[in-house]
Design a binder for these strands. Sequence first.
DNA 1: AACCCGTGGGT
DNA 2: TACCCAAGGGT
Length: 310
Amino acid sequence: MLQQTQVATVIPYYERFLSRFSSIDALANADIDDVLHLWTGLGYYARARNLHKAAKMMQTQHNSQFPDSLEQALELPGVGRSTASSILTFAKGQALPILDGNVKRVLARHAMVDGWTGSTATQKQLWRLSEALTPTSQTGVFNQGLMDLGSMVCKRSKPLCHECPVAIDCQAQLKGLQDKYPVPKPKKQKPVKTCHIAMIQEKDTVLLLQRPPSGIWGGLWCPPMFETEQELHEYAEQYSATKAQPLTQFRHTFSHYHLDINAWLVRVEAQNHSRVMEPQPTLWYNLQQPQQVGLAAATERLLQAITIKE
DNA sequence: AACCCGTGGGT
DNA sequence: TACCCAAGGGT
């Protein structure tokens, strides 16, 4: 959950997740829709599917435990070097270096590392620096301290260098260039895509389709989406003789593009009204008694728009 | 190597 | 507002 997601955002999700899945076995035995349900709104949904798959692997291959070696940990889907090393140092007392966003920032300033910290070459350099610093004893304490130094002192903006325990040999601080490091990501403007979404409503239910496991919103349930308004109208006519009416429109921004969403409301008299054959699994989502499935934040917003309109 | 994958906090 | 980026990993 913490991958590319702030701690404060994760905490409520973590609490609910651990209440529902209190062990690796509980998670491994769960239905994927149940897992994605508790991930609704958190983003990067492949993490949920990877975690579920990893639980199954641990159940069958590692006696329902997190593996003891770095090599075995790295075989789990969704577990890379940073996550594996964090777990192994904190939970099992192993001596391994870590490299999260906070550590990257500390190291990039301390050694004045040129190059964006996300590039392959720079990450390689940062790992080398982390390896060189990491002690062979009390590693968990050190790693936690290094991350906390990054989050509380060596902040992204206005770092508290006067409170920093390693300011004495911080290259950026010595030259007064703290604000120049880490080097910002090369900026590319995000493309804008447009889509038209059909909210097919029958009483208290709305038609949702399950998205394929890979790609945007993988495995989640979303209303039918179309690139053009014409496609939407042609689709809507299969369900209802009454015309689709505008519901709401807004911009949803992903990590790599903007999506301008135009939502339309199509009221139908009965479920499966026409002879529509959907290529994907379908679900009539009940607004009053919601099913336990995964929804994207944008889908929740669309469902909310219908509820308010009632 | 470059791109894909979400959403929200902070400025 | 617009922008950067967050306890990264997969392809």
